[in-house]
């Protein structure tokens, strides 16, 4: 079996643990400490930010334009519209800047 296959299996098990784990573990506690809850709340934004930020170091004008437009579009629309706006700017800018 390939490494990819094992990554998928382990990723699936890890994901299932998060989906059943709250029921099995957290619901046994009467209440969660506010600091722990604040930390849990911060997890998705913290992880996802680390996937964007270093890209800024290698980004050219086309990539910067796309990210700025995505951020601005997010103030208005949902995930799909901001994604399409960012992608459209990226493709147009790459055609002209290269």
């Amino acid at each position: 079996m390939s490494t990819t296959f094992w990554i998928i299996i382990a990723g699936a098990i890890a994901t299932y643990l998060t989906r059943i784990g709250g029921h099995l573990v957290i619901s046994r506690f009467e209440n969660i400490h506010p600091r722990v809850e604040a930390g849990l709340n911060a997890v998705p934004a913290a992880v996802l930010t680390t996937l964007v930020a270093p890209e800024l170091l290698n980004a050219g004008p086309a990539e910067w334009a796309a990210l700025v437009v995505t951020a601005v579009a997010s103030l208005r629309g949902g995930l799909m519209s901001m994604f399409l706006a960012g992608a459209a700017v990226l493709i147009l800018a790459r055609q002209s800047v290269g």
Binding site: A45, L48, T50, V52, A53, L67, A71, F83, A87, L90
Partner: peptide, 30 residues
């Protein structure tokens, strides 16, 4: 993918502490 991830990050912007968390994670990851 970076565009998509930025979209997801922006989607969490109503959460408490969103901006400080994003700034801290961005600086530390860079």
């Amino acid at each position: 993918l970076p565009i998509y991830f930025l979209g997801l990050v922006m989607g969490f912007r109503k959460r408490p502490l969103w901006l400080p968390v994003v700034i801290a994670s961005a600086c530390a990851s860079i």
